[in-house]
């Protein structure tokens, strides 16, 4: 039976999810919600999470010495190497278990958490290497579409037209021109991997994907849209409903790729135009004030439509055809 919110609440009446109060993330931040859901699911299913964190907002704000917001084993090494770091932890676990140096009756879950900077960009090599080597770990990307820790710079995940300090909307250039990297397909290209998108606004989908990742005999990867209210320039209380909107507008399609087999996990019966997702965020406001704003939004609409159709086609084409 899948975990429900009520069930989780019962389980966590007298225990913490691994993350405690007193962290110093911005009010309304999506990242701690993402992390909390992942850890609660693992703990509820009897796993002992051991976690690695890439440098970023959440890493900084949760461990300001001598304070730590973690009650699970936690390691931060650097910005670009959380996947390699957790691969070392996981390997140590296998080695020590094999040689009888640690008890073998525990069910560990090795998590690596990183933002989009640590995942799409500077940490991509480390991530690719760890996945290719087949370590059993779960990589959770909390994707807030920019380098928010350093104050809203462009990342490989920033959508076109979003105003950032290193790709600002200017008189000549309308902000970032390039589309987001398709990180899930990059990861899914490693063949023996479970890769999926998720977001807190669709909690049951998110929880079931964590469950699947926990039991997957190999590396798994979840790209979780996790708004940064500050630099998306949305009200602090809209963190959750904006991610729902992202799904309803095809901006953030929910799907998974299990060893090459695509499955779209949420198929809304009707969609909203992507402009609804764009217009609620003031990071797009400078763009929207430009005379050709409509054109740019049309382009984005066409892109999300095409990507959706492509996903459905991939689902059809890869059905029952796992690469392994």
């Amino acid at each position: 039976m899948p975990l429900t919110m009520k069930k989780l609440a019962e389980i966590f009446t007298d225990k913490d999810p691994g993350l405690t109060q007193g962290h110093r993330m911005c009010p309304g931040c999506g990242a701690p919600i993402t992390v909390k859901i992942a850890l609660m699911t693992a703990k509820a299913l009897g796993y002992e999470p051991v976690i690695g964190f890439a440098t970023g907002c959440m890493e900084v704000s949760s461990t300001i010495y001598p304070y730590t917001s973690w009650t699970v084993p936690y390691i931060h090494n650097a910005f670009e190497n959380v996947a390699a770091t957790i691969s070392g932890v996981e390997t140590a676990y296998r080695s020590l278990k094999k040689s009888g140096k640690i008890p073998s009756d525990r069910k560990y879950a090795f998590f690596a958490f990183g933002g989009d900077g640590g995942t799409y960009d500077i940490g991509l090599q480390s991530l690719s290497g760890a996945i290719e080597r087949g370590h059993k770990f779960i990589y959770i990307l909390y994707d807030n579409e920019g380098y928010m820790n350093t104050g809203n710079q462009r990342s490989g995940s920033t959508p076109p037209g979003a105003d950032t300090t290193t790709a600002p909307v200017g008189k000549k250039i309308p902000g970032k021109l390039q589309l987001k990297k398709n990180i899930v397909e990059i990861v899914a290209g490693h063949e023996y991997v479970y890769a999926a998108t998720a977001t807190a606004g669709e909690p049951m989908d998110f929880i079931s994907k964590i469950e699947k990742a926990l039991t997957f005999e190999g590396p798994s990867f979840l790209a979780v849209l996790s708004p940064c209210v500050r630099y998306w320039r949305v009200p602090e209380n809209r963190t959750i409903d904006i991610t729902k909107l992202a799904v309803q507008t095809k901006y953030w399609p929910l799907y998974e790729v299990d060893r090459g087999v695509y499955k779209v996990t949420r198929k809304p019966s009707s969609f909203k135009p992507v402009s609804e997702f764009v217009k609620v965020q003031d990071r797009f406001r400078p763009l929207l004030q430009k005379p050709d704003a409509e054109e740019i939004i049309d382009e984005l609409q066409q892109y999300v439509d095409k990507r959706w159709e492509r996903l459905l086609a991939l689902e059809e084409a890869t059905k029952d055809k796992p690469v392994r």
Partner: peptide, 24 residues
């Protein structure tokens, strides 16, 4: 010994930091 055939020296030292911290 468990050997990690890493994709770079950067990851070699990164993985060792993880492994050594783990208790190996």
């Amino acid at each position: 010994t468990e050997m990690i055939p890493v994709e770079s020296e950067h990851s070699a030292m990164s993985a060792l930091v993880g492994a050594a911290a783990a208790g190996a």
